[in-house]
Amino acid sequence: MADFADELTEDTTQIPENLAYYIDYERMGRDMELNGDIFTIETGYEEIHIFWNH
Rank of each mutant, 00 (worst) to 15 (best):
H49Y: 09
T9K: 00
I38V: 11
R30T: 15
Y25K: 00
E17Y: 10
T13D: 10
L19F: 11
D11K: 04
T13K: 03
T43I: 13
N35A: 15
D24W: 02
Y22V: 11
Q14H: 13
G36Y: 02
A2S: 12
H49G: 00
E17R: 03
M28W: 13
M28L: 15
I48D: 02
R30I: 15
I15L: 07
G29S: 05
E46G: 01
G44Y: 07
Q14P: 04
G44S: 07
D24G: 00
I23G: 01
I41Y: 01
E33Y: 07
E46S: 04
E17H: 05
I38A: 06
E26L: 02
L19R: 02
Y25N: 00
A2L: 02
F51N: 11
A5T: 02
E17C: 04
E26G: 08
M28N: 10
A5C: 05
G44P: 02
E7S: 06
D3Y: 05
G29Q: 09
E47G: 01
H54N: 10
Y21P: 07
W52V: 02
L8A: 13
M32D: 04
F51P: 02
L19N: 13
F39L: 08
D37Y: 09
H54T: 05
I23C: 04
F4Y: 15
I38M: 06
Q14V: 14
D11H: 08
N53D: 15
D37I: 12
H49V: 00
M1T: 12
A5L: 01
N18G: 07
N35F: 12
E47C: 02
E33T: 06
I48Y: 04
T40C: 01
I23N: 01
M32P: 02
T43Q: 11
L19C: 06
T43V: 14
T12E: 10
R27H: 11
L34S: 09
N35T: 12
N53P: 07
G29E: 09
M28P: 01
Y22S: 15
T40F: 00
N53M: 11
A2D: 13
M28K: 07
R27Q: 15
E42F: 01
E33H: 07
T43G: 06
I41T: 11
P16T: 09
A2K: 03
G29N: 05
I15P: 03
T13Y: 10
Y45G: 08
N53F: 08
T13W: 06
T12Q: 05
Y45M: 09
Y22K: 11
N53G: 06
I38L: 06
T9I: 11
A2G: 13
H54Y: 07
Y21T: 12
I50W: 12
E7P: 00
M32V: 09
